[in-house]
Write a protein that binds this DNA or RNA. Structure first.
Lengths: 322, 322
DNA sequence: CTGAAAGCGCTTACAG
DNA sequence: CTGAAAGCGCTTACAG
């Protein structure tokens, strides 16, 4: 910028004005500066700009794994919102590891990201308290925060699971299994609660032997149960669980009804197209980013909690009778 | 840092030494500084650090779309390599738009990324020449650069396509279609060349009417050809083309053999499991990132070109006879 | 419409 | 082992 200034015979403040499109520069001066910029191949150094202004022009996003379609859909939606404002997106994968979550979060905050969006792996976010008080908006996605009050965007986990189970009950199923991850995981716990609630409303209880983790393995175990205790239907709590169960069911002697939580590519192309509880990860990412920008625009109201709805998509696997 | 220094009654240089684990600080002093850091909740400002050192501690990655599994696998591999070095990853999706590619590239370079990895959408990269001469390593992935010499990591596109077609020829197919995107796209063009080469080696030519873009639509058109001109097999040039063709083939009266370029999730779970030409996008991302770090470590040798191999995975759809 | 001065928070390049 | 000074390249907050 100093070189441009001396080439155009102006001060660096005037160069700064031209580079940033600020008003108050005569057309003649602006043209001279523009020519010098082009001639020298000048490009603004945004690191220096960030240091002075205190804002990096970047959003930080921490997810479990970018290679998982659910999270990459979120990342893409967040990127689109950031990009509209000329901001960039910094993404980190924490692999369900609270230590990595924390390390990544602090690393991004040291970069002075304008806001931090986080799908938390840990269950204690008090380490973020100093940042929250320092005016960096933090938004939680998919899972709630612990120990700090912050904007949050969740799915209707319990409602979606309930809808799936109610659908299976309507087909006449009596024994409906639940295949999910450990209910320590927030979303798995909520979906299990929805499953239980649907059964309770129907006057049934959920036998412990029908509630399982480790999709592929436990589906085989369920199929090996004696007739009468064997489930005729199952709710799979996420896309990985569903795919694991489908692999195990491929060799099943008798058909088993299946509803999966989360839609997935090619669900409609399998031999028996898969009925799913669908939602929009794109909406989750977009809404979270918009909440962050609202805070940056000065909204200092109480933390906001938004819920993304779920809907049943009927394709075939959930309509198999008992 | 200044506050820490005065709290610990040392200079900021000493605080800097402690924060960065540099040697030459007595244990007593280090402990006093450490206590002040903990007490004040100090965290280093990495933007200031980057400005002074000239390095952001970040890798920039430009891809077509993070939500596409091929690219998210690359992004994840790059992130893992960057993360080992304490670096972060900034990702941008350019949607096959040369203007967005350029805008994103310049935006990342203004942030002083240590290196830029790019899956190019455009066909003129001379706009990067000033940066290359300024010692920012740039690595091209999946498609070659134009007008600048740079490290490049490509798939064995032609070889992979040739392998797929040779496999279909061995099954006795005489009329093998090619379903791909416009051959303006580098990878599509290379795969088409491999297809042609395999047919030429077998003493056959590729009739123009069997070479098509727009997978779903043109698969239907091919099926509507009169017997004798109708293909009995097809090579699909990428994962999107394959899925499009599979949707169209679902209602086909007679089975058609199919080999797809790119593996994809659930390929083995479809009614007829899909034979594919498989490769490793993870290797592509990892190798590209390693090349970038080798340059940063001082390697100033000639641009390197690496090729990722392809292999045929036999699953069923490619073994359907004519 | 234009510019001089200060400063963002660190690291560099020294000196002692 | 420790620190004083300069400077990275901008923007801020002024003054004229």
């Amino acid at each position: 910028m100093r070189d441009v200034a001396s080439a155009a015979d102006v001060s660096i403040k005037t160069v700064s004005r031209v580079v940033n499109g600020e008003p108050g520069v005569s057309a003649v001066t602006a043209a001279r500066v523009g020519a010098a910029i082009a001639h020298l191949g000048f490009a603004r150094n945004d690191v220096a700009r960030s240091l002075r202004s205190g804002r990096a022009g970047a959003l930080g996003l921490i997810i479990e794994d970018v290679a998982n379609p659910f999270y990459s859909a979120i990342a893409r939606a967040v990127e689109d919102v950031a990009s509209e404002r000329g901001h960039i997106l910094i993404t980190g994968s924490c692999e369900e590891d609270p230590t990595r979550e924390r390390r990544l979060a602090l690393r991004l905050l040291r970069r002075m990201v304008d806001a931090l969006l986080i799908v938390p792996a840990g269950s204690d976010h008090r380490y973020l308290l100093p940042e929250l008080s320092i005016d960096t908006p933090i938004v939680f996605l998919d899972r709630p925060s612990h120990g700090v009050a912050a904007d949050t965007v969740l799915l209707d986990n319990a409602g979606g699971a309930r809808t799936g189970v109610e659908h299976l009950l309507r087909q006449g199923h009596e024994r409906i299994a639940f295949i999910g991850d450990s209910s320590d995981l927030y979303t798995a716990g909520e979906r299990l609660a929805g499953y239980r609630a649907a059964l309770a409303d129907a006057g049934r209880e959920a036998p412990d032997e029908l509630i399982r983790a480790h999709a592929a393995h436990s589906t085989q175990a369920l199929l090996a149960l004696p007739r009468g205790r064997r489930p005729t239907a199952m709710l799979c709590a996420n896309n990985r669980n569903t795919i694991g169960a489908l692999r195990a069911l491929r060799d099943a002697p008798a058909p088993v009804a299946l509803v999966g939580f989360d839609d997935f590519e090619l669900a409609d192309m399998l031999a028996t197209p898969v009925t799913v509880v669908r939602h929009s990860p794109e909406d989750m990412g977009r809404i979270a980013a918009e909440l962050a920008y609202r805070r940056l625009a000065g909204d200092a109201g109480r933390p906001v909690h938004r819920t993304i709805p779920c809907e049943l998509v009927i394709r075939g696997s959930g309509e198999v009778g008992p």
